[in-house]
């Protein structure tokens, strides 16, 4: 069953972020959302993830689905090393080991977030989302601060995810969108609208 967002409204005080916004999303594949900062993409994703309630409207097809997310901020537990951060969401050591290797993080497994560079912290946040697994992956600028080579190394793993899951990717990078996305949705706002 595909995911459908119907006539969703959301506003913060006087700012209308979503106004009768509707969108259909497939069950699998990579759907990229592209648009200027502050147009309402993150609000839409947060409603999809169940982190925020819409003022009105409905979201169908996300109930009973496992949703994994890379937030705009890394949100790593500062008092735990990378391994601890990953064990917090996934008990299987083999899964953790696999994704640590995929994201070239194995040698930093025992490092604490403050000991990692910005790019490494971003990869760690991505690793947490990948080890958790899910039916829907919401990736809000997951490659921010990563160099080109690393991005190219990570792309295949994101494509692998999209075989069985829906990957919602927010990015401002045209190259990244072309390389990864099956569908690109250009957005503008607020209020959020499809261009």
């Amino acid at each position: 069953m595909s995911i459908s967002i119907k006539d969703v409204n959301k506003s913060y005080n006087d700012l209308i972020v979503l106004k009768d916004f509707s969108l259909e999303l497939p069950e699998q594949g990579i759907v990229a959302l592209s648009g200027p900062s502050g147009c309402g993409k993150t609000t839409l994703l947060r409603i999809l993830a169940g982190l925020e309630k819409a003022d009105s409207g409905s979201v169908h097809g996300v109930d009973n689905k496992r949703i994994s997310m890379v937030f705009q901020e890394d949100r790593l537990l500062p008092w735990m090393n990378l391994m601890g951060n990953l064990f917090a969401v996934q008990p299987e050591a083999s899964v953790i080991r696999y994704y640590l290797e995929c994201l070239s993080l194995t040698e930093y497994a025992w490092s604490y977030p403050h000991e990692l560079s910005g790019g490494m912290q971003r990869r760690a946040a991505l690793a947490r989302s990948l080890v958790y697994g899910g039916d829907i992956f919401i990736l809000d600028e997951p490659f921010k601060g990563l160099d080109q080579k690393l991005r190219l190394d990570i792309y295949p793993h994101i494509r692998d995810l999209a075989v069985n899951s829906l990957v919602l990717l927010v990015s401002h990078d045209k190259e990244e969108l072309t390389a990864l996305a099956d569908i690109i949705i250009k957005l503008d706002g607020p209020p959020l609208s499809i261009v």
Binding site: A49, G50, L51, I67, S68, M69, F71, E73, R75, L77, A88, V89, R128, Y132
Partner: peptide, 12 residues
């Protein structure tokens, strides 16, 4: 709050 939200999303 951001960490708590993260924990909620990852169903801790």
């Amino acid at each position: 709050r951001q960490l708590l939200e993260m924990a909620r999303l990852f169903k801790m």
